[in-house]
Amino acid sequence: MLVRKIRNGTVIDHVPAGRALLVLRLLGITGKEGYTVAVVMNVESRKLGRKDIVKIENRYLDPGEADKIALIAPTATINIIRDYKVVEKRQVEAPETLTGILECINPTCITRKPREPVIPRFRRVPGERLRYQCVYCGTIIEEEEILRQLTGTQ
């Protein structure tokens, strides 16, 4: 299958198969913003078996967006393209701490108390799985919940 190269923009490669649309949703890209977007789903990958690829013309990611992509597509690589060439390639990395990205699921956490001036903060739980622990109440948030919060899906 052929998808044309983009001249300038971002290619997000090695997205776990089935998550390409979630990546777009997370970036707030609906197709109406004027960017040319190409999504390739479920192609063979040496590393992953199957993968998705997202190409977005004339759009670059800020570091916060890269962090969020790491949370829903931990295997992703981000390629910055200028004049048809990859000028930068990096592996996303799930951040050690998250500030203001996730909400605590514990209803009696201080971060859930109305009007209290506190921004939710999480620390990564060491280990294979992608899990974060609320700094304030200790509650652990699992990957499915992270996905739900970031993309609004179940």
Binding site: T108, C109, I110, T111, K113, V118, C134, V135, Y136, T139
Partner: peptide, 10 residues
């Protein structure tokens, strides 16, 4: 003392 977890840290 508070019923909200994390009050003391805040």
């Amino acid at each position: 003392r508070s019923k909200y977890e994390g009050s003391a840290l805040l």
